[in-house]
Write a protein that binds this DNA or RNA. Sequence first.
DNA 1: CATATGATGGACT
DNA 2: GTCCATCATATGG
Length: 176
Amino acid sequence: MKLKKDFFSRNANVVAKDLLGKILIRKINGRNFRAKIVETEAYFGEEDPASRAIKKGDLRETMAMRAGTILVYGVHNSWLLNIVTGKEGRHEAVLIRALEPLNFEANTKGPGVLTKAMEIKKDFHKENICETGVFWLEEADKNAFEIHSSFRIGIKKDLPEKFRFYIKENKFISRK
DNA sequence: CATATGATGGACT
DNA sequence: GTCCATCATATGG
């Protein structure tokens, strides 16, 4: 079952946690590549020194768009996949940091490489994940797993809260 | 147009 | 853990 807009219109913190274990499907040349989300981070545009959305025009604008909007953020030589959450105008998003491939082999252990594996590029920027038809999320099987949290990775000025969430002992998380 | 700067990845100790 | 190549953006002239 596809995840709808309602799923994303909650707080980024809640969505980030709830996204763990969900299935991401990317349709390439008529084939569906399925991967489980195993690691996420929550970002807040306002009052979040880690988020560049607070200053940069386009990012800030995109984070304020409606829930389910895909935000592709380029840094170094990589693309990072985010999904806008919360109510419109709230400046919240969840970063997808790692996936577990289910019906294919690829390196998806990190936010930059998973976008290469899934062929996610700036093309998707500002598209809505509920509407593209080639890229969406589905409810997962009810697998039991334990959620761990930690501080966000690679951030210069982080908040004193743990906004990174990952599935305990999963082999595909980007870092321990 | 020139230059600074990373929400990185991979190689290495 | 540390080091650094690399390139799409943002910003300033």
